[in-house]
Amino acid sequence: MALLHGTAELVPSKRELLAEWMPQQPWFHGGEIKPLGSFRFDDPDGEVGMESIILTADGHTYQAAMTYRAAPLDGGRLIGTMDHSVLGPRWAYDATSDPVFAAALGTTILTGGTQAPLVRDTGTETVAVDPVVTVQGSGVPGAEIETIELLGSEVTDEGTLMETSGPNLVLIHDLEGGAKTMGDHRLTGQWDGVQSALLAVARLR
């Protein structure tokens, strides 16, 4: 379950951080970014926020994944820092450099999992939130898998390749350009007007 703080303010906003970070990435073709929606994974330890945001810019559709931490991550690729009015200072990282995200992504794909349920804290109650983006892994529900540890990551022509102790994972950023990316298992997403977009793949070794 992913908890959203409905009354919280972020300075700078996620959109402002990404507007500065995305033009520095080799997979971005330029233009003003417009978020379409996002989905989240759940950290079993409840420490790391994980969000993958779907955006458009100049006719291209992109995926940018971020993790949110209460302290710096050694070795993580920092996107920027934010002040969260409820949680305090937050460090936002490129999720493909965060071991918690790699484990969540790999597990979701291999076990046929979905995005985390969303719950909003309004200050007086918590209410369920309907997701704008839903995702589905192609693996076997309930499958037992070994712990997935991130060994390294690098940007390739397909997206960002995450080498792990289990499968190699590719998170696709340019969602039109990544349509032909191959893998043994995959993560697909749906949102308004899109029935099945390829978001990531897992390659077994």
Results as ranks from 00 to 15, higher is better:
Leu4Asp: 09
Val11Gly: 09
Thr188Tyr: 07
Gln190Phe: 11
Leu17His: 04
Asp45Cys: 05
Thr164Arg: 00
Thr181Asn: 08
Ile54Lys: 09
Met182Arg: 15
Val127Phe: 01
Leu73Cys: 08
Arg69Thr: 03
Thr81Gln: 14
Ser165Phe: 01
Asp184Pro: 09
Val155Met: 10
Phe101Pro: 01
Ala103Ser: 12
Ala8Val: 08
Leu110Arg: 07
Leu110Gly: 04
Ile54Phe: 09
Thr164Pro: 04
Gly139Phe: 07
Arg186Tyr: 10
Gln63Pro: 04
Arg120Phe: 05
Trp21Lys: 05
Ala2Pro: 08
Pro117Asp: 13
Tyr93Asp: 03
Phe41Gln: 00
Asn168Ser: 11
Met162Pro: 01
Val140Leu: 14
Ser153Phe: 01
Glu32Tyr: 07
Leu3Trp: 09
Leu161Pro: 02
Gly31Phe: 06
Gln24Arg: 09
Gln190Trp: 13
Met66Leu: 15
Asp43Met: 06
Leu4Trp: 13
Gln195His: 15
Leu87Pro: 12
Met1Asn: 12
Gly166Ala: 12
Thr134Gln: 15
Glu158Trp: 04
Tyr62Arg: 11
Ile145Arg: 02
Arg15Phe: 03
Asp184Tyr: 10
Thr122Ile: 08
Pro23Phe: 10
Glu32Ile: 06
Gly139Met: 05
Leu198Ala: 01
Thr164Asn: 01
Ser138Glu: 03
Gly178His: 05
Val86Asn: 06
Glu158Thr: 07
Gln25Ala: 05
Thr126Gly: 14
Leu150Glu: 00
Thr96Asp: 04
Thr134Trp: 09
Lys180Gly: 12
Ala116Met: 07
Ile33Val: 13
Val140Ser: 10
Tyr93Pro: 06
Leu198Phe: 02
Asp45Ala: 13
Val11Glu: 12
Glu9Tyr: 04
Thr81Met: 14
Ile54Asp: 05
Ser13Val: 05
Met82Trp: 11
Glu154Tyr: 09
Gly106Asp: 00
Val155Trp: 03
Leu198Asp: 00
Ala95Trp: 05
Leu169Tyr: 01
Ser165Ala: 00
Gly113Pro: 07
Gly46Phe: 07
Ala64Lys: 13
Tyr93Lys: 05
Ala65Glu: 03
Val86Gln: 11
Asn168Asp: 15
Leu150Trp: 04
Pro99Gln: 04
Val170Lys: 00
Ser97Arg: 01
Leu175Ile: 09
Asp184His: 14
Thr7Ser: 13
Asp130Val: 13
Pro44Arg: 02
Pro44Tyr: 01
Ser138Ile: 07
Leu175Met: 08
Asp74Ile: 12
Ser38Tyr: 09
Thr181Val: 15
Pro99Arg: 00
Val132Met: 13
Gly88Trp: 09
His185Met: 13
Ala200Gly: 03
Glu163Phe: 00
Leu3Met: 11
Val201Arg: 01
Thr111Leu: 02
Thr164Tyr: 01
Gly59Ala: 07
Leu198Thr: 03
Thr111Ile: 02
Gln24Lys: 08
Gly75Ala: 11
Ser97His: 03
Met66Asn: 10
Leu110Glu: 02
